[in-house]
């Protein structure tokens, strides 16, 4: 059995439809109309132990709802969920002992105390031994640089400082399952890459299972072998995004800068390759687009070197963003 099992999971909300304006507000007092919102619609997936699963989707797709069900905060309308053999929303206190949760947008620390006090409180709650705790602190200080922050009250931390402390706090007890909900939101490049390294290292050395939600697809590219894409409550992609990139995004572009003025018809004549698409960028530069499965880039470059007099050549790979955008637009895969 997989570590995380999700079967036919559905969550719908009843929200009340507000009428606008003064008159509407008055009517609302006496008669209310409700509508059902299907946040998560019959989804199925499982995560094996030691996997880092990317979980992506546009805003309001149902990502956070899924995470909140998996962490035991929300109760599903229908379906079955088990994490580590426990049903999160039924055995909440037992379940949360085994998980670590980072919500990049809200803190997990108690506001009114200093960071170190929050940490020692968590140490006692999760029953972490004092030596393990010291070791963890040392490790977190090396990777996340939290040493100087320990004696600052949580409410006075900046966003970046707070997220770093939050990550440390939620991993203090070495949980076997970790949920990261936009953990790198609003962080600078250096901190971001530190955190990525740390996540990767933790996964490799401890076999921690992780679910990562993010809008930053470079996080996914770097960390996840497998990703789920959810849209309007339904899973529209389950697999390796890198592979999807190879399969879906077949168009490549070569940008060629020349010493002489661009003459597209002339160049087309000279290269003599079918199915190329030429776009003029400016007087001395053009872009050649082609399908990588039909023509190899090497052949094209060879021809360019033989017949033209290029100043510079650049090959453009499609980004993961374009792939994901394509999947969103196709809606199913």
């Amino acid at each position: 059995m997989a570590l995380i099992e999700v079967q036919n999971l559905t969550k719908s909300y009843k929200t009340f439809k507000r009428k606008e304006g003064l008159k509407g507000a008055f009517i609302n007092l006496f008669r209310r109309e409700y509508e059902f919102v299907q946040a998560v619609d019959n989804i199925n997936f499982h995560v094996e132990q030691g996997e880092i699963l990317g979980y992506i989707g546009p805003n309001g797709a149902g990502k956070s709802t899924t995470i909140k069900i998996l962490t035991g905060i929300l109760t599903p309308t229908d379906g079955k969920v088990t994490v580590n053999g426990l049903v999160p929303y039924k055995q909440r206190q037992q379940h949360v002992k085994n998980i670590g949760v980072v919500f990049g947008q809200r803190t997990q620390l108690w506001w009114d105390i200093a960071v170190i006090e929050a940490f020692t409180l968590l140490r006692d709650i999760y029953e972490v031994s004092k030596t393990d705790f010291q070791e963890q602190l040392k490790k977190f200080d090396e990777v996340l640089g939290i040493g100087p922050l320990l004696h600052i009250p949580v409410r006075k931390l900046s966003l970046g400082q707070r997220v770093r402390c939050d990550i440390a706090a939620s991993l203090l007890h070495n949980p076997p399952v970790v949920f990261l909900d936009e953990p790198t939101i609003g962080l600078d490049v250096a901190v971001k890459s530190n955190i990525r390294e740390f996540i990767k290292e933790m996964n490799a050395s401890l076999g921690t299972t992780m679910i990562l939600t993010t809008h930053d697809l470079s996080d996914i590219e770097y960390l996840c072998q497998r990703s789920l894409i959810i849209d309007q409550g339904k899973i529209i992609f389950d697999g390796d995004l890198q592979k999807a990139k190879d399969e879906l995004a077949r168009e490549r572009k070569i940008q060629v800068d020349l010493y002489e003025r661009v003459d597209i018809d002339g160049i087309r004549e000279q290269l003599k390759i079918a199915k190329l698409e030429f776009t003029r960028r400016n007087d001395y530069s053009l872009t050649i687009s082609f399908d990588k499965d039909e023509i190899s880039a090497i052949d094209i470059i060879q021809k360019i070197l033989d017949h033209l007099h290029p100043r510079d050549i650049k090959i453009e790979e499609p980004t993961i963003e374009t792939v994901v955008k394509e999947i969103y637009q196709k809606k199913s895969f």
Binding site: K68, T71, G72, I73, Q93, Q94, V96
Partner: peptide
């Protein structure tokens, strides 16, 4: 404020 969520994520009553 959402602090409730944070507290629900802790193994405490």
């Amino acid at each position: 404020s959402g602090e409730l969520i944070m507290n629900l994520l802790k193994p405490v009553s």
